[in-house]
C-alpha cells in the first residue's frame, strides 16, 4: 500500500500527530478522513502510480461518454455537417434555432408512434419476460444432482452469448416463411405462415426472442439469492407444519424480494430502451409501423435521413426522460425500504 511510502518518507510528521501506528488503522473504513492530514501534494506524489493507472479508463470515458454530451447542442441548431471540414467545427457555423427542433419532434406523429411502440414493448416484456427467470431459478434450484444442475445451467446460459443477429436468424429459420414449421406444414398440405413479418404479432415475437436469449441468464442472480437463504428457516417452517408451497411462499419469496425489487427498478429506469439492435435488425422485415421504437426512430431520422438536429432533439428527449425515470425508480425503491441501484 502506498501509504507505507509516506511513512518511510516522513516518520517525524506521523509521530507528531500522535496517532497509533498505521498498521492498526489499516482496515479503517474512514481512512480518507485521516488522510486529510497529509498535504495534497504528498498524496498526489504517493498515489501517482495509481492515478496513472486510471488515466486510460478516465480518458476513454471522458472522450466517448462525456464529450458527446456537449454534442447534443446540435439539437438546438439547424445543423449541417457539410458546412465545414469536420463535424465539430460545423457546429460553430450552423445556425441556432432555439427549440424549433423540439417543436417539430413533439408535433411529429411518427415520434409519438415510436413512443407508443416503446411503451407497449416495455410493458409486454415486464409482464411476460420478467417473471420467467424467477420461475426458472426456482426450478433449477430444486434440482439436487449437481451434474444435472450444471448441465441445465450451461444450456440455459448459452443463448445470452449469442449475438442478436444470430438469435433473429435462428428465429427466422424456425418461425419464418421459409422456416422449419411453415415448411413442415406445407409438406403436409397445410397453409404456411410467416410469423416474422406479421406486424400484429411482432411485439410478442420480440418478447419471445428476448426470453429465449436472456431469461436463462437472468436465473444467475436469483440462484445466488436462493443459495444465500438460511436453510434453518426452511427446517423451522417445516417443523411448524408448512408444506412445500407454504415454505416457498413464506421463506423463499421473501428472500428474493430485495433482488426482485432491484431488478424491477433497473428495468423501469431503462424503460425507454427496449432492444435497439434487436428491433433495428427486424425493421426491414416487419416495417417501421410495428418495429419503430425511440432508438430506431433516432437512428432512422439521424443517420439515414441525415436530419441530425432533429434526431439529436428526439434522442435528447429520450435521454432526459430516461434519466428522470432511473432517478425516480431509485427513489421509489428507497421509499419502499429496498436498496436501489445506488445508496442514498
Amino acid at each position: 500500500m502506498s501509504t507505507l511510502d509516506t511513512e518511510k518518507a516522513d516518520p517525524a510528521a506521523r509521530a507528531a500527530t500522535g496517532r497509533p501506528p498505521r498498521g492498526d488503522r489499516r482496515r479503517d473504513r474512514h481512512r480518507s478522513r485521516t488522510d486529510g492530514r497529509v498535504p495534497l501534494g504528498r498524496r498526489l506524489r504517493r498515489d501517482r502510480m495509481l492515478l496513472l493507472m486510471t488515466a486510460p479508463v478516465l480518458a476513454l470515458v471522458v472522450v466517448f461518454n462525456y464529450v458527446p454530451i456537449l454534442g447534443n447542442v446540435v439539437a438546438f441548431q439547424d445543423y449541417d455537417p457539410y458546412v465545414s471540414t469536420n463535424g465539430i467545427t460545423a457546429i460553430f457555423q450552423s445556425p441556432w434555432v432555439g427549440l424549433a427542433q423540439f417543436e417539430r419532434v413533439f408535433s411529429d406523429p411518427g415520434f409519438w408512434h415510436a413512443v407508443e411502440n416503446t411503451l407497449v414493448l416495455f410493458l409486454l416484456q415486464l409482464v411476460l419476460f420478467f417473471p420467467v427467470p424467477i420461475a426458472l431459478a426456482l426450478l433449477v434450484n430444486s434440482v439436487l444432482r449437481p451434474r444435472v444442475r450444471a448441465f441445465v445451467q450451461a444450456v440455459l446460459y448459452l443463448p445470452h452469448f449469442f449475438s442478436w443477429v444470430l438469435v433473429i436468424t435462428v428465429f427466422q429459420q424456425i418461425l419464418g416463411g421459409a422456416g422449419i414449421i411453415a415448411q413442415t406444414l406445407r409438406q403436409h398440405g397445410h397453409e404456411g405462415f410467416d410469423l416474422m413479418t406479421d406486424p400484429e404479432i411482432f411485439k410478442f415475437l420480440v418478447t419471445a426472442e428476448g426470453i429465449w436469449k436472456d431469461a436463462g441468464w437472468g436465473v444467475i442472480v436469483f440462484l445466488a439469492a436462493l443459495a444465500a437463504v438460511n436453510q434453518d428457516l426452511y427446517e423451522a417452517a417445516a417443523m411448524d407444519g408448512a408444506n412445500r408451497w407454504r415454505r416457498m411462499w413464506h421463506v423463499t419469496l421473501p428472500a428474493l424480494r430485495p433482488v426482485i425489487a432491484l431488478l424491477l427498478v433497473l428495468r423501469v429506469g431503462d424503460a425507454l430502451t427496449v432492444g435497439f439492435e434487436q428491433l433495428l435488425l427486424q425493421r426491414d422485415a416487419v416495417g417501421p409501423g410495428a418495429a419503430e421504437v425511440l432508438d430506431t426512430f433516432v437512428w432512422w431520422t439521424g443517420l439515414r435521413s441525415q436530419d441530425f438536429s432533429y434526431a439529436a432533439a428526439a434522442g435528447l428527449v429520450k435521454g432526459v426522460v430516461g434519466l428522470v425515470l432511473v432517478l425516480s425508480a431509485n427513489k421509489i425503491a428507497h421509499l419502499m425500504g429496498e436498496q436501489g441501484v445506488y445508496r442514498k
Binding site: L40, L51, F64, N65, P68, I69
Partner: peptide, 26 residues
C-alpha cells in the same frame, strides 16, 4: 487521492447515454 471522484465520474455514465447522433459526430 481522487479515487472517489473518478469512481463517480465512471458510474455516472451508467445512468445516461450521450445519444447516438452526438457519438456518431464525435
Amino acid at each position: 487521492v481522487g479515487h472517489r471522484f473518478i469512481l463517480l465520474t465512471l458510474m455516472a455514465t451508467m445512468f445516461f447515454g450521450a445519444g447516438l447522433i452526438p457519438t456518431y459526430l464525435l
